[in-house]
């Protein structure tokens, strides 16, 4: 630049205008940032699930199990209560499954038929502190090919047992025999549970409505509280299965505290897969490309990971990339749509 006296006023004006444009940009940026009025990160969301369902610790007053007694049945053993420390004594190696999911207490009692004492059932009432926890242990243990019960949100039966979730409780009824009478009595107990066992009614699991319903395998939604797909940081994750042209596809979502954390988890999960032998692939679908979804090849299966706002979502171990991507796009649409309606 030549060093001649005199001011280049034109240049000064141009630079000034440019700088003012920068200021304008900053102002716009600040305004965009402030539009986020989500106060949950400040702990001040009055609708937060944490408020409506306060977790309690320690030994609770045992619920009145006798009130659940079905018609024609009598108490066959005294009620028992177990805490975290002695849960092993009752259910042995299965205990960690419950302990890791917020278990508070287990209440058990046997009921036997008044006519035939060989027909009895044992009631297991797990107090899991919160609906999500109860749903988690329910969903991960759910047997395949079972009959779900009508009129109840989370309940199914096998030939000699019945399982259900009621608020913070997860309930198992295990029968002594494969008897229709016994099953009928169990259904009675289930009805008694829903009508007589007091729980916080407001609790909901919003994620359940975030999976697209088309082609979904009914009742396949699972909630894994930690170590989902073997990855430590993927906590609180819902997954479900879809049936598409004889192919099964697993989709998953996990709501994180905020979008930043979601991006972080998405990245660390894909890093984890890559560490374990996955390789990057290009997304075929424009939608996936646009939102920066990660598509990975994992030993000839396709993994897709993306974020929508505070959600991490994706497809797990799909055989066919194209089908996986289509399903991913549906999930993205659903999440985006629900984010809009929420606002």
């Amino acid at each position: 630049m030549p060093s001649v006296p005199g001011r280049n006023r034109r240049l000064e004006s141009v630079v000034s205008v440019l700088l003012l444009a920068v200021l304008l940009l900053i102002a716009v940026g600040v305004l965009i940032k402030q539009a986020d009025s989500d106060m949950t990160r400040f702990g001040l969301d009055a609708n937060s699930a944490l408020y409506s369902e306060k977790t309690q610790t320690g030994l609770q007053e045992p619920p009145d199990l006798a009130a659940l007694l079905p018609k024609g049945f009598k108490e066959f053993s005294p009620p028992e209560t177990y805490e975290a420390a002695n849960l092993y004594e009752k259910i042995n190696g299965k205990a960690p499954l419950y302990l890791d999911a917020g278990f508070l207490n287990l209440f058990t009692q046997r009921f036997a038929s008044q006519d035939d004492e060989s027909l009895w059932m044992e009631l297991y009432l797990f107090d899991m502190a919160a609906l999500r926890n109860a749903f988690s242990v329910y969903s991960v243990q759910k047997r395949a090919d079972v009959e779900t019960l009508p009129d109840m949100q989370f309940a199914y039966k096998t030939t000699n047992a019945l399982f259900l979730v009621h608020g913070r409780y997860y309930i198992e009824l295990l029968g002594s025999d494969e008897s229709p009478d016994l099953l009928a009595a169990m259904t009675d107990v289930a009805d008694n549970v829903t009508s007589r066992l007091k729980v916080t009614k407001t609790a909901q699991i919003p994620e359940l409505n975030l999976f697209p319903q088309e082609n979904i395998i009914p009742g396949s939604i699972k909630l894994s509280l930690k170590d989902t797909f073997g990855f430590e940081d993927l906590t609180d994750t819902f997954s479900c299965h879809y049936k598409l042209n004889d192919q099964s596809i697993t989709a998953f979502i996990s709501r994180r505290p905020d979008a930043r954390n979601a991006q972080l988890i998405a990245k660390s999960y894909s890093d984890f897969l890559i560490e374990n032998g996955a390789t990057n692939k290009t997304a075929g679908n424009e939608v996936l490309k646009n939102i920066g979804a990660r598509v990975l090849d994992f030993y000839d299966t396709t993994e897709i990971i993306f974020t929508v706002g505070p959600f991490v979502g994706g497809i797990h171990e799909a055989e066919d990339q194209k089908a996986a991507e289509e399903q991913a796009v549906k999930l993205i649409d659903k999440l985006t749509e629900s984010a809009k309606t929420q606002k």
């Binding site: 949950t40 400040f42 702990g43 937060s48 944490l50 977790t55 917020g102 509280l225 609180d236 505290p257």
Partner: peptide
């Protein structure tokens, strides 16, 4: 009890930006 504002505004992580669940010891922090 139900507030985590201080950690959210701390610019240097001297106060961690905790979630309410962590503060109250719920869910995965039980």
């Amino acid at each position: 009890l139900n507030c985590t504002a201080c950690g959210q505004v701390c610019p240097t992580f001297a106060i961690r930006p905790i979630t309410l669940a962590e503060k109250l010891g719920q869910d995965q922090f039980a």
